[in-house]
Design a protein around this nucleic acid. Structure first.
Lengths: 109, 109
DNA sequence: GATATTGTTTGTAATTTTGCGAACAACTAA
DNA sequence: TTAGTTGTTCGCAAAATTACAAACAATATC
């Protein structure tokens, strides 16, 4: 894989994480999950002013993006942060923003 | 403003930044702008495999989100990173990801 | 003034996202 | 076996996103 391909791959991945985080409700869900050791669907639904079908949809997107994971604990469903990918996202955003140094990216005004 | 309102405000802001970054082309544009001191619309368009109208559209979104800024330098248009908001976004993402510590957010498997 | 260059805006089409209620599936408890 | 609880999936509608070509605006140059 060339360096350019690798860069493109990272751009795709970063965009994927960013897209998943690109909705206030999903940020709220992530924040809620990050605050506690654990929680069930019902608790998440309880703190959000939207229909359960919509909550379920947002959870699915976060799961597909890899930021959270779910587990059935019948008859409930338990959700939590996917720590491995959380760290990966954290590192990627951090690296992305830190690439701007010194005089770079500075031409206007 | 209550603490909760403030938190909600930050969630909105963070989601806004994330949404702007939620497309591979826009990540590519930001990366391109961050790599150099300066650049014109034409140079950005040149490195992307999409129509100029689409490039212009993506630039508008990044500008509306506050991540970049543009300036007319007739007959060209100069774009660059908005450093102030770049730092704000950087800090917000960093803070967001760092809220997950210890045993928090860790219940599955 | 006429023409060329540079980007933006407009109009349009296809796709995706968001949100909801209702139906459904899976498991528990009576 | 029959209810009850918990979430997901389906079907639908409205809105937003993505992308392009064509038209347009603004400035520079001949």
């Amino acid at each position: 894989m060339t360096e350019k391909d690798h860069k493109n791959g990272n751009q795709e991945k970063l965009a994927r994480f960013a897209k998943a985080m690109g909705h206030p409700t999903r940020i709220a869900i992530l924040q809620f999950l990050a605050e506690q050791k654990c929680c069930f669907f019902g608790e998440i639904h309880e703190v959000l002013p939207i229909a359960k079908a919509t909550v379920s949809q947002h959870l699915k997107e976060l799961k597909d993006a890899g930021l959270i994971q779910g587990e059935i604990e019948a008859p409930k469903v338990k959700y939590c942060i996917n720590k491995e990918n959380w760290k990966m996202a954290s590192d990627m955003f951090s690296g992305f923003f830190s690439q701007l140094t010194g005089e770079k990216g500075n031409c206007c005004e």
